[in-house]
Design a protein around this nucleic acid. Sequence first.
DNA 1: TTGTAAGCGTTATCAA
DNA 2: TTGATAACGCTTACAA
Lengths: 335, 335
Amino acid sequence: MERVTMADVAKEAGVSKSTVSQYLNKRYEYMGEKTRTRIKEAIERLDYQPNYIARSLKQKRTSMIGIIVANIMHRFSTEVSHAIEEYCYDSDIQAIVCNADDDPAKEKKYIEMLMAKQVDGLIIFPTAKNIDLYDQMIKSGYPVVFMDRKAGDLNLPRIVANNVESAYDAVDHFIKYGHRKISIITQELSTSPRAERVTGYKNCLQDHEIEYKDEYVINQPIEELQLELDRMFSLSQPPTALLAGNDLVFLEILRFMKRKSISVPEHFSLVVFDNIPFADVATPAVSTISQPAFEMGQKAAELLLKQIKKEDVELKEYQYPCDLVIRETSARQTD
Amino acid sequence: MERVTMADVAKEAGVSKSTVSQYLNKRYEYMGEKTRTRIKEAIERLDYQPNYIARSLKQKRTSMIGIIVANIMHRFSTEVSHAIEEYCYDSDIQAIVCNADDDPAKEKKYIEMLMAKQVDGLIIFPTAKNIDLYDQMIKSGYPVVFMDRKAGDLNLPRIVANNVESAYDAVDHFIKYGHRKISIITQELSTSPRAERVTGYKNCLQDHEIEYKDEYVINQPIEELQLELDRMFSLSQPPTALLAGNDLVFLEILRFMKRKSISVPEHFSLVVFDNIPFADVATPAVSTISQPAFEMGQKAAELLLKQIKKEDVELKEYQYPCDLVIRETSARQTD
DNA sequence: TTGTAAGCGTTATCAA
DNA sequence: TTGATAACGCTTACAA
């Protein structure tokens, strides 16, 4: 196991612990050539590995940050985490990814555990149910960045997509393609992006003077979606275009299509709000609204590391535009 | 920031640090009822949060483990990591996931950094290029479990899939479906699973007395695959069945199909060796050899935690059978 | 240029 | 049943 300590190296090299410490922290300025090589050799001979825990205790920094993801099953979360990790790697920072699984209690537990582990800061996809806790962290000056979701009226940097506008654009695209019976399907409206996507949908219908119909709007838990889809497609006038609110919803729509043996874009046009793997190479290629997950992740990391280094950051909302990519699941409606 | 320490709580409650420590570690046996409540109240009043770093320094355990994934872009890696995390969550252990990105130098750096951070053990998808380092860790008694890939002849628990047999089964399935011109496509044969899958392929052809043809076997980096596929499908006798060696290869095959406007199973049958999202709900649904990623991850975690707790574990290879799921991309060949 | 010594916030040992 | 006190392995004034 880990045996060799700095004291051993010091003894081996015939110097004191502090000198070894100096050496390790590359403070060579006032260090004699011989002492340096002697320490170097001693370290090699003993195969000494420094203990970062001890250093952290003293320095009050761990060079670790935490990422608390609301639900790791979303491709978007994975892409963002990945971008954060990559950014951190260049600064010799470790990222610990935790999955709150859409459970506020689990989120709370992770926040407390990561803070107890003295991680230097946190990037959170907030469940938005632990407002008091968020508030307390922020007030205490602890570095935090919010990602993807809005929560409360807190004074910290937030990275979000322009959900309203992007959903608007997708619906606008449907309308330009001749659709009038347009549906939007999301999970429960318990998070800001979902609600915003529905808002964009409504706004666009309104601007085009298309009547909003409740029966075309599904906001239900994943488990309910098959039933809801059955219902919606039994209408005398089923929708001809669907906007899937995220990748998990898309999965359910695929399942539904499989079950009914129907296909896109023949039966309806489809746009998915989310990054999905294979979207471009699938047949038919899937039209998507893709969020700039990589840029968003990098920005979050940048803002967090700046806060950790006590540099000034703007405590505002950083909004990212998404990219509506029309592929083969969108078709013109001619009736 | 983090201000309140155990000493503050002790003072506030009018007891000594050691008593507070006892309380926190739930050693109530010899503790007076009143002291207990006084400490409890003091903790609440001060909103004290223990510092796990200090505890770790003393106890020489961090309750963290590291996962070093060879390449995070594989769905399999994500699923395994996820299973490990879930298992660890129940034991109050944190998992730190690092992506070596198929780079032995990066793998080495991560191993050293995680050990310096005093993580209690490591689950590694080895690049198999750092044998000396692996050897050293294992000799020193550090808890390690290998996942997915074989590396060197080391004395530690290894979790692997039965690659030879599973590839064999897929080819056997092709042959039963009337195929004789069967191709296998993988990346470079630099890892054991890839080589084993090719072995299974060869064995099966041999058992069925089908001639092995080099021109049907592609083992090239991802970037070369489009060229190689072009070449292979320009043969006078192109293959009628393809076994894709993993999910990234599958992506390239999809890209190729898109480019050539050809489809499965009309142009060829396809089985993918890997877990891919949407496989069952895609159209056509994709035949896959799915690895029991969840079980493999759980087992790895179980074996690692046992080692950490100094319990005996068998230092052997744990081999997991995969599941050949025939879906719609496999068709009978009638010519 | 290097060494001494006092922490960092816990836990563990042993007395009281 | 509780309290001193010495670690844990490192950093950092300050002294030499």
